[in-house]
Design a protein around this nucleic acid. Structure first.
Lengths: 221, 221
DNA sequence: CCATGTGAAAGCGTTCACAGCG
DNA sequence: CGCTGTGAACGCTTTCACATGG
């Protein structure tokens, strides 16, 4: 009934599509660097490591940015995906927990490239306060709310031990953070309007362990 | 037609189930530490952050290890999941690429706990060769095949820059590695008998960016 | 009586196959 | 003619609802 607006329609994308858009974007940026002007779904699929039909279906959700018989304009598609992902906006990031991982995150190149900027780091160990991680000075956890608010932090990376993590998350959310990436080996809860994703090395290894075992068993008939 | 053997049947588990077993396992280990003897699917679900029906369906794939009217025996279920995940086997791990991330991986506690042991680290920067990462000495990439074979490495963590990664993977696979966890921001190819999983910070951030943007748009009607 | 284990239903995601358009 | 965009088919995952059994 309702006539859907077409190109400017901010319709929700399927989750699976959202999770692949950054892969397409990376492939397109690399292609752009190589001065590739146009790309078919076949080629993009090969570069992204997925099926060509999947690429077309995913991209069709963004609108109609391809040309039949030709392919997709690399520059145009790059721009459309960037816009959808909100990479045109700036995201201020805080790192909580400055152990080995926190340091690695702070020094990671690839934030700045696409609109993410680390503006604060926190740790509850007084010995670490004052250290430099990436380009910011480590502050005590007590200053978390104040800094999150004053620096307009919307994204947080949790690199604390498991035990303190839920409390940290509650405080971050209370101070206005809306997106959280959790590296701590613990299940965290957030209110529904906050997005929480996790990166868990131990879990990934155990999954690899399962398939490794299956391969061994298959090998020995 | 074929009569399926029951408990000892090493049937393939659904992928989605495999990816949740490590979460259940962690919850069960924590419960064990708290001297919890028995757990219902409701409680386990709450601790794992999933739906109770999901827990029961997942666990039903392992066999029938619950007691109706009571719940699951924590010790028994812990043991069954560990066995399924191959955690009773030892997995020798190599880290390739010893930058910030490689160091963080090398120092990560949580390998040893469940059958994974870092036995080698490699880097092609001569300045890094000889450094200590975790408990192993960094070796030059030239020694990769020799060490993978002599140390029976089956699992590799790729923490190199994007450009060298595919070549490293090819060499690892050639030398007998069967499971790879890729941290480099690039799409890698492996033969079908090798399991490849990826952890990609830039992609995770961009996904967060999408949902963060959606939340902002929703907020302003 | 209570919680498991499981068919059945509903929901998503992927892949196919081809109509349609440049 | 070639490649996109898409309806339809298929398969996997989640959730429901309840029969089953300790």
């Amino acid at each position: 009934m309702a006539v859907a607006t077409k190109v400017t329609n901010p319709a929700r994308l399927p989750e699976a599509t959202v999770s692949r858009l950054p892969i397409y974007l990376r492939a397109l940026l690399e292609a752009g660097d190589e001065h590739v002007v146009t790309m078919s779904s076949d080629v993009l699929a090969a570069r992204a490591g997925v099926n060509a039909a999947q690429v077309r279906k995913d991209l069709s959700h963004l609108g109609s940015y391809g040309t039949r018989g030709v392919g997709y304009d690399v520059a145009l598609l790059t721009q459309q995906i960037s816009r959808q992902l909100g990479l045109t906006h700036e995201h201020n990031v805080a790192i909580v927990g400055v152990g080995n991982l926190g340091h690695a995150l702070g020094n990671y190149r690839g934030f700045a490239s696409r609109g993410f900027r680390v503006v604060a780091a926190f740790d509850n160990d007084p010995a670490k306060v004052g250290e430099l991680v990436g380009e910011v000075v480590v502050r005590p956890l007590a200053e978390l709310e104040e800094v999150v608010r004053s620096q307009s932090v919307t994204v947080a990376l949790i690199a604390t031990p498991a035990q303190g993590a839920q409390e940290v998350v509650d405080r971050l959310v209370g101070a206005g953070v809306t997106s959280i990436l959790n590296f701590a080996p613990v299940v965290l809860s957030v209110p529904p309007q906050v997005t929480l994703r996790k990166v868990d090395l131990a879990i990934e290894l155990q999954i690899l362990g399962y398939y490794g075992l299956q391969a061994m068993l298959a090998e020995s008939h």
